[in-house]
Amino acid sequence: MTVPESDGAQIEVVRVFTDPAGRFGNPLGIARYSAVENADHQALAARVGFSETVVVHDPDPATERVKMRIYTPKVELPFAGHPSVGTAWWLNDQRHPVKIIDVPAGPVEVATTDGITWARARAEWAPNFEFHQFEDAAAIATLDPADFPEGKHYCWGWTDEPRGAVRARMFAPAMGVPEDQATGAAAIRLTALLTRGLNITQGEGSQIFTEWDSDGWARVGGRVVADHPIVV
């Protein structure tokens, strides 16, 4: 039997894809499975209200793997980049590092190098987005979430094409997210579309890095910082 909410459960919070000073980034809620085992996880994510909340099992130290489920306020996702990067960093910070996060889409390889936490996945695991390229990247700042009442939209433009620098915003009311401050899955999709690594500035100032593998895999990475836990 499940209950619609989990009164008193502590949700850890990290901000994923911050700038070098630890500013901006996208909040991620992290719930330990043991604390919310009998709760309705989708209802819990809606109550938390972040673009994504994850439910994480205890890692297996023998295999260095962990199971994870990902929820937006409206739907469960088979894969998402910001939760994968954020959870990998958090587990490492908790002294329970893993090499693989098993999500419904498949095994996500994770690693941290020089302060950047990376997650490797296939582009087709990510949700489909409608991409809108802007010739004038400055115009992206003038967009209003109300302009996108439905669907999943990623608006982007080059700020320095030779260096792979991109300005972007994402609007996904279909996922219960009017605007997302940093979207790893969309970054992977765009990387696959352009078949090159990118340095993306999204939302107010979040920074996302990607790398393209010619065999169809891509990596998405960024900086993560701890934020204050919440109780729901």
Rank of each mutant, 00 (worst) to 15 (best):
N92Q: 13
F50V: 08
T113Q: 15
F131N: 02
N128P: 07
T112Q: 14
F134T: 02
I230E: 02
H57Q: 12
G115I: 08
D144W: 05
Q181C: 01
R189D: 05
P149R: 09
T2G: 00
G176M: 01
H82K: 08
E161I: 02
P104K: 14
I208W: 02
A146D: 14
T113L: 14
E76P: 08
F129L: 15
V166W: 06
D19G: 10
Q10D: 11
T63N: 05
R69E: 06
P127Y: 03
R169G: 00
V56L: 02
K99P: 02
W158M: 10
R69A: 10
W156H: 10
Q94C: 14
V14A: 08
R163Q: 13
T87C: 02
P20S: 13
D227I: 04
V3P: 01
F17P: 03
D19N: 15
P73W: 06
E64I: 02
H82D: 08
T72N: 08
S214K: 13
H57Y: 03
L28Y: 08
I230P: 00
C155Y: 00
V66L: 02
A182E: 00
T72R: 01
F131E: 02
E52W: 05
Q42F: 09
G222Q: 03
D147H: 08
S34N: 12
G164F: 03
N38P: 00
G86W: 07
F50W: 09
I101P: 09
D213I: 00
V220L: 06
I100K: 13
D114A: 15
A121D: 04
G184H: 01
Q42N: 12
H82T: 08
R15S: 08
V48H: 03
K74Y: 11
R163M: 08
V75H: 11
V224S: 06
D136I: 09
S51T: 13
E161L: 05
Q181E: 12
Q202W: 07
G197I: 02
F50C: 07
A146M: 10
P145K: 08
A192H: 01
K99L: 12
A21W: 04
Q94S: 11
D147G: 10
A119M: 13
I11G: 00
G176E: 02
A35D: 15
R32C: 10
D7N: 13
F148D: 03
S6W: 12
D144E: 13
A80S: 12
F79I: 11
A43H: 15
G164C: 04
D180E: 10
A121M: 15
K152T: 11
